[in-house]
Design a protein around this nucleic acid. Structure first.
Lengths: 110, 110
DNA sequence: TGACGCTATGTCAGATATGACATACACTGG
DNA sequence: CCAGTGTATGTCATATCTGACATAGCGTCA
């Protein structure tokens, strides 16, 4: 069920339309992806606000630059856990993380 | 970085001290665990509110009763992602999940 | 008592995520 | 133009997580 989708992804590449429709995501999966996107955006914003490079953050996390890049782009290979860990490492509180997750995304212009 | 800790654990054997000190949890790790605990509690609460058994929920999730039990007990082998997915499956919204994560836990009696 | 329904715990093969590395790209200052 | 700095993307071996299964505990009902 997860595997199927990845296959489709690899073959299809990136086209337009909502992410949800194109990937045939269920509502739950769409919500999970939105959560990850919100966290990823926050992560990048926070890192930049602290004037850190991806490499510096990676070292703090005991990870590598490439993985930080993937986190910030909400790459499919990064887990929710990785995103939350990183935000915590950048000083975000539980409450802030809760807010990031709960905040409604900006509506795209129709 | 996770492996290191386990190594240390195995070598050190069993000494006393608070869990936190003994396991040498950083503040970030402690926060992550608190988040997982909050989600786990909510999961159980929600499942019960819907009068579902662990088995029923497991089937909805494409999983097994044992894993649901582990989720509800915030077992170390369950990921943040699994907890969030399960809550979404039980109908929780992004906003609700944000609130669960952000909410301060009840202080233990001193 | 025993049978039944629900939950808890341990284990393990297979699936998924990770850090590390290589490499490419984009931008800037010289 | 080149060199340097920061970011993006692909791959791979290994670490971690997952579903499934077995089995045990624990109420409850007859």
């Amino acid at each position: 069920m997860k595997q199927e989708k990845k296959e489709r992804l690899k073959k299809a590449g990136w086209k337009v339309g909502t992410t949800k429709e194109f990937l045939q995501l269920t509502a739950e999966e769409a919500a999970l992806i939105e959560i990850k996107l919100a966290l990823a955006r926050s992560l990048k914003k926070r890192r930049m606000a602290q004037k850190m490079t991806q490499n510096e953050l990676a070292k703090e996390l005991g990870s590598s630059q490439s993985r930080v890049a993937k986190m910030e782009s909400a790459d499919a290979t990064v887990s929710l856990e990785a995103l939350v860990r990183s935000l915590l490492a950048l000083g975000a509180s539980r409450q802030e993380i809760g807010r990031i997750i709960g905040k409604k995304p900006v509506e795209p212009v129709s």
